[in-house]
Design a protein around this nucleic acid. Structure first.
Lengths: 334, 334
DNA sequence: TTGAAAGCGGTACCAG
DNA sequence: CTGGTACCGCTTTCAA
């Protein structure tokens, strides 16, 4: 089923069919009607590949995330998608599962698709990519990794400040031995997040910390918690790298009869919806995911009226959100 | 950046470049090396649109889901994706948010992309579509809606049996007044799920039921619960259409000081991971999401060796999973 | 083993 | 307002 068949049936040229399809230039009303009729009768749908090949453009933006299963990424994705749709763009998504080879192949896939813009909301990185990306001339925005470059924008959260707020708060509650629950992707001192956490603790001499990591899932949070507790270290508070892992942690503690926050304080990060719905509701750090999504879309899709969102780098300062999963360390002795 | 430029740099024809790209037919080794070098130096990535246009095929399958935010859909999606990748296929996803106009445009988008196969894991439906789909000659699989057709496979869960198991179980625990928490998409007696629930209750004369619905989210579950309780009806058990809404329900009950399962029993559906991690862990009905994902992929992507997964219709019988959110109705009087 | 050239299904420019 | 036609970038015969 192609343009030509439709053209034949409507007794016009393919050019005209194309015109009504894109309701471009003026087509006589009677002709248009005939064409539309033919299209419907044939249930014709234009081949999008041919279209973007011929047109040279794609009206599609690519979004790559580390773990769509984590609502944090999903929320950002969803915002981008809805903004993009509102501007007449499609979006294609790719999930890397924190694997940098996946990131590489996803990025290449996106380049192959000649997307109009690319958002990489990922924690992992592959240095060789930025050059390829720069060459591709595709507008790119990175979240959490990378550095500003010619055609690439950077959005980052001041994770360091966020984690400091958590540490200070726990310290003020009397906690001295802290556990850090991370996921594999942030393992190792190379990682900004891990480093930030360690540094935040190091500022305060009386503090002691120990970390454990597992997958970025509910189950991973549970396992990491189990591992940490099995190590013999006895923290009175657990700082989790995100809310999902914190919920996993909560479960492990519950099964061990460790009361939260009575015997152990737990903090999350991101402030995803679930953090309010779990029990106890999590003290966490808010990362404005919708705002991030909007910024991403603004810097990728040039709006008609507005200026093309200049800033090559945007930094977001996260806020502490107090709820029920944290309490004074002293309570434990009661 | 295109084939021709690479060809020029490697001093060969575009045909040859194409050959090494698809490592088809025999290319002399020295030539191949030269071409590969040119490709790398130029950081060339083939235009996928041109490729699928010329080749006539796309090695991409489309997956449309109602609400990716609900892990139920995500789990199926993820299985399909990993199976597809294993077979050398890409997958493009679309989310409908239960809106049937979105379903329509997503399906058309997929047809436009000339996907090699299409999976519709959705609850909503638009009758006019099946004809278009049939005409498109694309292999399609529907979950939960639709009827088998020439090129379309159907997978369905015997929701009726599942809900009966829940109702019977609650009845055996002494519950007589049941609340049903659904989401908008299943509202109205037209919907299979809603009907199944009502029928399951109707089988047992002593039972009384009242329903409320809201969005398919944690917050929606909470709101629906609030609405139901505000109506004056006083159930001793709440049957939720899925786990996510059940977790939302749990929160509302907790804030009202209604103990679960002491004062109220709550059941979920799907058995997503979260149902084990929430508090109390949910009694639910297991739907084998991975199995569904595998079946989908098998019926869309013809495997090399195996026969092309015949069955035009697959029915899955779900199992009840008992956990901590249900208990005897009598306990309430204690 | 390699090159030339005819499409694939549209778009868009140029005439008429 | 409509038709003819030269591409878009790649695959795939057909010959050499």
């Amino acid at each position: 089923m192609n343009l030509e068949q439709v053209a034949r049936r409507a007794k016009v040229s393919t050019a005209t069919v194309s015109r009504v399809l894109n309701n471009a230039s003026v087509v006589k009303n009677s002709t248009r009607t005939r064409v539309v009729k033919a299209i419907e009768e044939l249930k014709y749908y234009p081949n999008l590949h041919a279209r973007s090949l011929a047109g040279g453009k794609s009206r599609t933006i690519g979004v790559i995330v580390s773990n769509l299963e984590n609502p944090f990424f999903f929320d950002i994705y969803k915002t981008i998608e809805s903004d993009a749709h509102a501007r007449g763009y499609e979006v294609v998504m790719a999930n890397t599962d924190y694997r940098s080879e996946q990131l590489v192949s996803s990025i290449r896939l996106m380049i192959g698709r000649r997307v109009a813009g690319l958002a990489c909301i990922v924690s992992e990185m592959a240095p060789e990519l930025i050059e390829e990306l720069e060459q591709s001339r595709i507008p790119v925005v990175f979240y959490d990794v990378g550095r500003p470059r010619p055609n690439i924008t950077n959005i980052r959260v001041n994770y360091r400040r966020g984690i400091e707020k958590v540490v200070d708060y726990l310290h003020s509650l009397g906690h001295r031995k802290l556990g850090f629950i991370g996921h594999h992707a942030i393992l190792g001192p190379i990682n900004e997040r891990m480093k930030a956490a360690m540094d935040a603790v190091a500022r305060i001499p009386s503090l002691e910390v120990r970390a454990a990591a597992d997958a970025d899932t509910l189950e991973g949070g549970r396992q990491a918690t189990r591992a940490l507790l099995a190590s013999g270290f006895a923290p009175t508070a657990l700082i989790c790298v995100n809310d999902i892992m914190a919920v996993g942690s909560l479960r492990e503690l519950r099964e061990r009869g460790i009361g939260v926050p009575r015997d152990m304080s737990v903090t999350g990060f991101d402030n995803v919806k679930l953090s309010e719905f779990c029990y106890p509701a999590l003290t966490t750090v808010d990362i404005p995911r919708e705002r991030i999504g909007h910024i991403v879309c603004d810097s990728l899709v040039p709006r008609p009226g507005k200026p093309p969102a200049a800033d090559p780098e945007v930094v977001i300062d996260p806020e502490l959100v107090l709820r029920d999963s944290t309490g004074p360390a002293a309570a434990r002795e009661a």
